[in-house]
Design a protein around this nucleic acid. Structure first.
Length: 210
DNA sequence: ACATTAAGTGATT
DNA sequence: AATCACTTAATGT
């Protein structure tokens, strides 16, 4: 595990910290499409993503969801951070977007390391900041009902985390992620296709120029 | 060949 | 932008 960690995080953490992480954390590989953390679940571990990507979404009582953002290698879940501090339960749902390798750090170490390692402190604060900005961005587009922009961002993000210009999803899936109707997604996608930005096929979308 | 599911379209609110 | 109603196209059995 130490080698894996070093490979992905040596530019962020000092050697001592890397070693300590590898001592206390659990290494885990999760297949695509699995639920990592569900709504209402209490959080015991803080995940550090080594490879792959995770989709973070919010869900209401009816099961309607709304994708907030994706996390990938080098990221951690800001929700865990706020959960640890507030000692609350998860307000979000995390599903692996691709096969994901991660290390799980017991939450009590998170606080301990905050005072012990400068690099850890910087990492936590920076992650928090990044997520906060991303969230604000999401609020902006939702509040002003710019569905086309949300779709654009969604496609970009999806292509990025998958390291592939071809996205394998149905219009219905996208509609669920963005919490809109399939018809709307189909129409907006059609426009993008006419503009020459994407290519549509059944169950897949190729990104040409966004 | 038929049933099922994904995607396209016009009209309406 | 959402919903309805309907069509067309792709896929599976």
């Amino acid at each position: 595990m130490l080698e894996q960690l070093t490979l992905h995080y040596n530019y962020l953490f000092e050697a001592d910290l890397l070693k300590e992480i590898s001592n206390v954390a659990h290494y885990k590989t999760i297949k695509e499409g699995e639920v990592v953390i569900d709504y209402g679940q209490s959080i015991l571990y803080m995940p550090l993503v080594l490879e792959g990507a995770i989709k973070i979404s919010r869900e209401d009582k009816k099961g309607d969801e709304l994708v907030l953002y994706f996390i990938e290698q080098g990221d951690t879940c800001a929700m865990t951070l706020s959960c640890c501090i507030g000692n609350s339960k998860s307000q979000i749902k995390a599903i692996t977007e691709t096969e994901t390798k991660l290390v799980l750090i017991p939450v009590n170490y998170m606080e301990l390391w905050l005072s012990k390692y400068k690099s850890w402190q910087r990492f936590i604060l920076q992650s928090y900041n990044e997520r906060m900005n991303e969230l604000l961005e999401a609020i902006d587009t939702i509040a002003f009902l710019k569905m086309d922009e949300r779709l654009n961002k969604y496609l970009k993000d999806k292509a990025m985390v998958n390291h592939n210009d071809v996205i394998f999803v149905t219009h219905k899936d996208i509609a669920q992620d963005l919490h809109t109707s399939r018809v709307v997604v189909s129409r907006l996608l059609k426009v993008l296709e006419i503009e020459g930005k994407i290519k549509l096929q059944r169950n897949q979308i190729q990104i040409l120029d966004l």
